[in-house]
């Protein structure tokens, strides 16, 4: 323990730590050390899995109790509304069932993958990102349940994101609202294609490369295109058009879409066991 101050030593410590950090960053990004670091990441994540589950088990009943006590009236109304919607949906599903069969046989004829046919793993969201700089969620299943890197993740309504990191018992999903997220999309009415990009939590996705001559309708559904060995199979709903405008002289339209899934509230998801090459 230092009895007197040693500024030279302090600077030396800072220099060593800085160089060490830079070395680790370099190794992780492009060196042979990437596998080792990935191994450490997976190990630590799995070791923390029980802690996260315990925190979940403690936190969710508490918030659930207060939520239930204060919002009893609201829940009653919601229950009634859901019952009505369920009745309508049951009728709809009977009609859709026959159409789906038709679509299946058609897509099979064209040798196209159909989302309904892809095997999937249902998983629960156990945590969100600990950082303010990335939008991810953690699922309670990993390689043990057949989840691999780059698999698409959906909720009932549509696309949630894709698996970016997976360990034995946990998988990390990059949400479609993250600024580093890209997905090839197709406008459902015109069939025109583009690339949708995330723009941060709670913000609309922007779609690039939409032709100026394309007519884009308000609330038009946008689905994944599945073009060029894409990570995503075609036909998964991504969002609905919020607005589209064409600035004078621009070579593409400014289209923004609202995601169909509210990724901040999603609690159960399906991981489609689909990888681009298959």
């Amino acid at each position: 323990m230092a009895v007197y101050r040693r500024p030279a030593r302090q600077r030396f410590v800072l220099l060593v730590l800085t160089l060490l950090s830079v070395t680790i960053i370099t190794l992780d990004q492009r060196g042979q050390g990437a596998n080792v670091i990935e191994g450490v990441r997976s190990g630590v994540r799995d070791a923390f899995a029980p802690v996260q589950s315990a925190a979940n088990a403690i936190a969710s009943p508490i918030s659930g109790f207060f939520g239930g006590a204060f919002r009893y009236r609201h829940l009653q109304n919601e229950n009634a509304r859901l019952r009505r919607e369920l009745a309508t949906a049951r009728t709809r599903s009977l009609q859709v069932g026959s159409i789906e069969g038709e679509l299946k046989s058609l897509t099979a004829l064209q040798h196209l993958p159909f989302v309904g046919n892809i095997p999937s793993v249902t998983a629960r969201v156990v945590a969100t990102s600990p950082s303010n700089f990335e939008l991810t969620v953690v699922l309670d299943k990993g390689t043990g349940a057949g989840i691999r890197k780059d698999m698409p993740v959906v909720a009932q309504e549509g696309l949630v994101g894709r698996v970016v990191q997976v360990s034995g018992r946990r998988a990390v999903v990059l949400l479609l609202t993250d600024p580093s997220f890209n997905v090839g999309v197709r406008l459902s009415r015109s069939g025109d294609v583009g690339v949708a990009k995330g723009d941060g939590a709670g913000r609309a996705l922007s779609v690039d490369l939409v032709d100026p001559s394309t007519k884009v309708g308000h609330r038009e559904v946008v689905v994944t295109s599945g073009l060029q060995e894409s990570v995503f199979p075609p036909g998964i709903p991504v969002g609905v058009v919020r607005n589209a405008r064409l600035r004078a002289g621009a070579l593409q339209q400014d289209v923004s879409i609202d995601p169909v899934v509210d990724v901040r509230r999603v609690s159960f998801v399906k991981v489609l066991q689909w990888t681009g090459s298959s």
């Binding site: 800085t18 960053i25 992780d28 990441r41 600990p130």
Partner: peptide
């Protein structure tokens, strides 16, 4: 420690936080 839970390269937070 926190880098192991993020998607950014390991060592990035370590660099910023130690400075």
């Amino acid at each position: 420690a926190i880098d192991l839970f993020l998607q950014t390269p390991v060592g990035l937070s370590a660099l910023a936080f130690s400075l």
